[in-house]
């Protein structure tokens, strides 16, 4: 299962290694690390967000090992996506390989296509799709949209974004 985890590191060298070691020992697959260098918690620690894949039965052990290494685990949750956007695509969405478009976004690890509606009025006619993309944060959402924009340009698809959002 894919989970997000907020941890806190002390501001001394070698802390990141102490955080990553238990992950490897528990065979968790690390997908993203967001390291907030400039931020400090009231406890004067540095917040770090992790997204990882692990077996549910390993989770408790992982937490215990992190804490044994002096790493504070503040939050563990499956609800890792905080930003969401709907995008309409118009053109030869199917023929140009919608799966490939979705894969490119899913592969990032920080964003996912969570919903897809599709309409195909007939061969040779342009189809329309509405996709919803979730991402772990605003910056990641922008990155996912940049990928979508690049793919759309290559496949000659019209991309319709909500107002206030740039790709």
């Amino acid at each position: 299962m894919r989970i997000s985890m907020d941890i806190e590191l002390k501001d001394v060298p070698g802390q990141m290694l102490l955080a990553l070691q238990p992950l490897s020992e528990c065979r968790a697959n690390l997908i993203t690390v967001v390291h907030h260098h400039q931020k400090r918690t009231p406890r004067n620690t540095m917040p770090v967000q992790l997204v990882l894949e692990t077996r549910p039965e390993n989770l408790e052990l992982l937490k215990a090992r992190l804490e044994a290494n002096g790493i504070r685990v503040v939050r563990v949750g499956e609800q890792r996506f905080r930003e969401s956007v709907s995008v309409v695509l118009i053109g030869h969405v199917i023929h140009t390989g919608i799966q490939d478009t979705i894969d490119r976004i899913d592969k990032t690890g920080f964003a996912e296509v969570v919903d897809l509606s599709l309409s195909m009025p007939g061969i040779e006619k342009p189809s329309s799709a509405l996709i919803k993309i979730d991402a772990v944060g605003k910056e990641e959402l922008q990155k996912a949209l940049a990928i979508l924009r690049e793919v759309s340009a290559k496949k000659d698809l019209l991309m319709v974004l909500p107002i206030g959002i740039q790709a």
């Binding site: 309409v88 118009i90 509606s117 309409s119 009025p121 189809s127 329309s128 509405l130 019209l158 319709v160």
Partner: peptide, 11 residues
């Protein structure tokens, strides 16, 4: 010119 009725409906 590329907008389709389907896209409008889905939106």
């Amino acid at each position: 010119t590329k907008i389709t009725p389907d896209a409008l409906e889905m939106a």
